[in-house]
């Protein structure tokens, strides 16, 4: 009896440890490509490079970041961009999903065509949208810069100055380039969001909608009181995806406006790119990356909190 127990022990130990060994490769990969870089970013944010090596500078990188004139501007631009981008994409995505949900003829074709922007790299989308509006030479510049169509002087999207701000230093109303950037970004994100919302819409039972109509609900009431509440988890996922993508994406800004004209489309992610890869200020770039990460977390937590409250109230 005792010998059998002794023989079983190694086998049990192996069985107990097997899950650990199986997840070990994943853990190692996560440690290597996520946890280590995160700690390294914290370390970098407290150091500054000198020819002989790294100097510990405490919070100096953060202080220098806050002293930069363009930092405050970038925060404002990021807020304007995120609000415009998420709102436009969600509203348009929802409307298109509603249309596609009507079982139109050739709806499969529409969905396929709709998906095209999603498969194009954002940097390419930026270049194409840029070529459309290059002043004097772009495909649409003849229309946009025509004073008869857009009085008094026409619009030069990539070079027009921002209008006077309504709220002190906050960049609102945005420059035409920022509006164009929002439109281009929304155009690219629209297919994914539309399909996401369409899939969620198709899970809503027709019986509920039909019975609400029999009770006299109009189209807007069906959307407001049935579709939106039932689709709320999906809407939150869409909002997450758009907010985080908009917060961290740099390709579109890089290729479409280069942060310009002036600094009028310079968002935080682009500033991060400039600090790290143009100015080689890795310490300050790491400090900014940490701030962006904190904002990302705050956004996620706030959205989750709002969603829970909404779900409870329904």
């Amino acid at each position: 009896m005792q010998r059998t127990e002794i023989r079983r022990k190694p086998r049990n130990r192996f069985r107990n440890l097997l899950p650990f060994w199986l997840i070990l490769p994943t853990v190692v990969v996560i440690l290597a490509i996520q946890v280590y870089p995160a700690f390294y970013t914290v370390w970098l944010s407290l150091h500054q490079r000198q020819p002989r090596g790294w100097d510990y500078v405490g919070v100096d990188n953060f202080q220098r970041l806050f002293r930069m004139g363009v930092f405050g501007e970038s925060v404002g631009h990021t807020i304007v961009f995120l609000i415009g981008y998420t709102t436009l994409t969600l509203v348009l995505g929802f409307i298109i999903a509603l249309l596609l949900n009507r079982k139109l003829k050739l709806s499969g074709l529409y969905i396929t065509v709709l998906f095209v922007p999603w498969i194009i790299a954002d940097i390419i989308v930026g270049i194409v949208f840029r070529l459309l509006v290059v002043p004097d030479y772009g495909l649409l510049s003849g229309i946009l810069q025509n004073p008869a169509i857009f009085p008094p002087n026409g619009i030069s999207v990539l070079t027009a100055s921002r209008p006077p701000s309504w709220f002190g230093g906050f960049p609102f109303p945005p420059a035409p380039a920022m509006i164009y950037l929002i439109m281009a970004s929304a155009w690219r994100a629209l297919p994914f969001i539309t399909l996401l919302l369409l899939a969620a819409m198709q899970t809503v039972s027709n019986e509920i909608i039909e019975s609400s109509r029999m009770d006299g609900a109009n189209g807007w009431q069906v959307v407001r009181h049935i579709l939106i509440p039932l689709m709320l988890p999906t809407l939150v996922v869409a909002l997450f995806s758009l907010t985080l993508g908009g917060m961290n994406g740099v390709g579109m800004v890089f290729s479409l406006t280069g942060g310009g004209p002036g600094t009028s489309t310079e968002v935080l992610s682009y500033l991060l790119y400039v600090l790290g890869w143009s100015q080689l200020e890795f310490g300050r770039a790491a400090a900014l990356a940490l701030l962006i990460a904190v904002v990302n977390w705050a956004l996620i937590l706030a959205t989750l909190r709002i969603t829970r409250v909404e779900e409870r109230s329904h």
Partner: peptide, 13 residues
Amino acid sequence: PEIAFAGGFQEEE
């Protein structure tokens, strides 16, 4: 010209 401010070396046009 306006294109001088468009970036991307497009002022050359």
